[in-house]
Design a protein around this nucleic acid. Structure first.
Lengths: 192, 192
DNA sequence: CTGACTCGTTCACTTAAGTTAAGAAATATT
DNA sequence: AATATTTCTTAACTTAAGTGAACGAGTCAG
């Protein structure tokens, strides 16, 4: 389990045994059951989540309706905006599956960053990379139609279509479940 | 001019005179004429841009059509994804107005980060903050209609509506210029 | 086993965005 | 100043998404 994490980190920085042990001593690995809600609207938290196994979802409740805006799967991490802005959360985070997560909190990160500058470099690189990736996702969302977005999703994250209920996928694509259903039928139609 | 920058930075970290001079010696301030294209599709670059005065725009050319995805105005900065991924750029960046920009390049940043750990902290904090802000923008885009997006824009960046041509605003909102025109007429209709 | 609920799909209808075209208004060019 | 060119708006028509309702399949709880 730790190996998965350290393999991932080794792509960015080289850690000594001491540093690895320092991470492990923080007791950040957690098994979380499907359906668990990690964060609720209005709640204050300092926790970040990193998925080693499973899938978590971020969603808003607007006019009583769930609006899913993000899914995080293996080797993806989420620091809720409310952790950065130090305000109550605007959304929910819940577990789609039984998960193995790394849960860290920002106090902890500040402490570790102070002790090992290498971690600060790691955090900077990860943030910058994530920022660039998210920028591209946003641009692609803006410049394409719902149908094209769905086709892109099939290309880029085919697993999601299997793991996740259609109505959540729909709002992830910025449309209603009925429209996704119709759009899928339309695509099948075209293929034949 | 330098003061604008250091005032901004002072919100995040405290710099010594030595550190300030070290920044100034890099010769990063540039006056750039309206219409200048800072980055073209296919081009490789290591440059980041930070707007002290003016407005720059990022846009794709898809099927011969410009698709504007972002505007950056005073105290906003852009590191093109291609700088992070070290690949040719997928989009263009151009100047909407006569600008005063800070142009830095990533080699320079690596050097400064190595010399002053404080800069690394600054970069990390700015990236994390920007990531959170952009996440919220993306979520809000996904969960709202074109009309609502336009109303949000009036609330959040009223200056843009004045400074920027409608047809560029339209693609920024994910729609066609004609739709924006119609949508504006519809809103006026409702008000009366 | 049964009734309640969720989920995905389909349908008919409404609403809004895309498309194509035309023209007015503002800007830039010569 | 006259002529292009770009920008914005309007209109008619097409296409696709939103809405409300209904239905069957599967899931859950009593």
């Amino acid at each position: 389990m730790q190996d998965i994490l350290f393999d991932f980190l080794s792509k960015y920085i080289t850690l000594t045994e001491e540093e690895k042990n320092s991470i492990l001593s923080l007791d950040i690995f957690h098994s979380i059951k499907k359906g668990t809600i990690l964060l609720k609207e209005g709640q204050r938290t300092k926790e970040s989540y990193f998925v080693l196994k499973g899938c978590i979802r971020a969603y808003y409740v607007i006019d009583g309706e769930e609006k899913t805006t993000a899914f995080y799967t293996e080797m993806e991490g989420l620091t809720p905006p409310c952790v950065i802005s130090k305000t109550p959360s605007e959304y929910y985070v819940s577990c789609m599956e039984d998960n193995i997560l790394i849960i860290s909190n920002s106090d902890m990160e500040v402490a570790v960053n102070g002790k090992f500058p290498k971690f600060e470099t790691l955090c900077r690189i990860l943030s910058e990379e994530l920022l660039a990736k998210q920028r591209i996702d946003f641009d692609s969302f803006k410049t394409s139609s719902p149908e094209q977005r769905y086709l892109n999703l099939i290309q880029n994250r085919p697993d999601l279509i299997q793991r996740v209920p259609q109505h959540q996928l729909a709002s992830y694509l910025g449309i209603k479940p009925q429209s996704l259903s119709r759009l899928r039928a339309r695509i099948l139609e075209k293929k034949s």
